[in-house]
Amino acid sequence: MEGVQTYKAYFVILVLLLFLTFLLNLSLGSVSIPVNEVFSALFGGETAKSSWQYIIIDYRLPKAITALLAGSGLAVSGLLMQTLFRNPLAGPFVLGLSSGASLGVAFLILGASAFGGFFGSLLLSQWSLVIASALGSFLVLLAVLAVTFRIKDTMAILIIGLMFGSVTAAVVGVLSYFSNAEQLQQFIFWSFGSLGNQSWQGVLIMAICCFIGLAVSFFSSKSLNALLLGENYARSMGLHIKKTTFVIILATSILAGSVTAFAGPIAFVGLAVPHITRQYFKTSNHFTLIPAVLLSGGILMLFCDTVAQLPMSEFTLPINAITSLIGAPVVIWLLVRKRKLLF
């Protein structure tokens, strides 16, 4: 297996790109802040306008970190799913993970009134949002997996994932019918996907979850590499399939679940980023691919968020719209150019 060494130059470029997009993301927005002022705000220096300090530290920095975490987390979870399900179309969105998370959050936000008063507000704390969302995606993934053990055909599994998506969407529909306007609005804004309005505490929780998920993923690299040969070959090389599958699914649902909880269901990043990365990193070694996909996911998300802020204007577009607008053409372009998607 070719290691990280072979792609050293690529990694340097990715890290530089990440810094660039990160700074760009901090600097651009409804108010443009010069890059040198961004630096002085970050490192506690004086800014030309005192409001800039506030904008950077309390609004844009948490948002940029959220974007970075969301992009990395979703992209790596997509890579894991593609290897686990041996299907290039797998991703958190396609397999119904995001819908599962939506269901969890829907139950929480729309069902909170049922518990009423103090208990209701307790439920809506940030941790509970994460847990509900992670639990939702975990349950959907378990269901998809239960089917996987019975059906070997991966196409069938994808279709079942899509069906789960439809069912959860229907349940969310029923729940919204019975909830009041305020709750509905809260849920709909969540479902648009939003990286902003994140408290530092929220960013910290998200970072911890993503870090755990990414670490578990990275430490599963050897098993993931074995899975590239298929289950039977992997087993013949001494791999515990059930244990490995469980660990990978756990990592995926922590990543997809926590990102979806904080940033809403974000489309296409999980599916598209691993494929984009494979265009440059011509290896299947997960020890190389995971860091590469992680960096690429962060870069793409920061870029999408910068576009979504519509620099120099008052408006902000839903992040979900931007990732779809960029992600869908990329997948189509890859398919047309290579005629097939490999993983």
Binding site: L228, L229, G230, R278, S284, L342
Partner: peptide
């Protein structure tokens, strides 16, 4: 056949 044909 091994699941991934993208391996070298």
């Amino acid at each position: 056949t091994p699941a991934s044909k993208n391996l070298t």
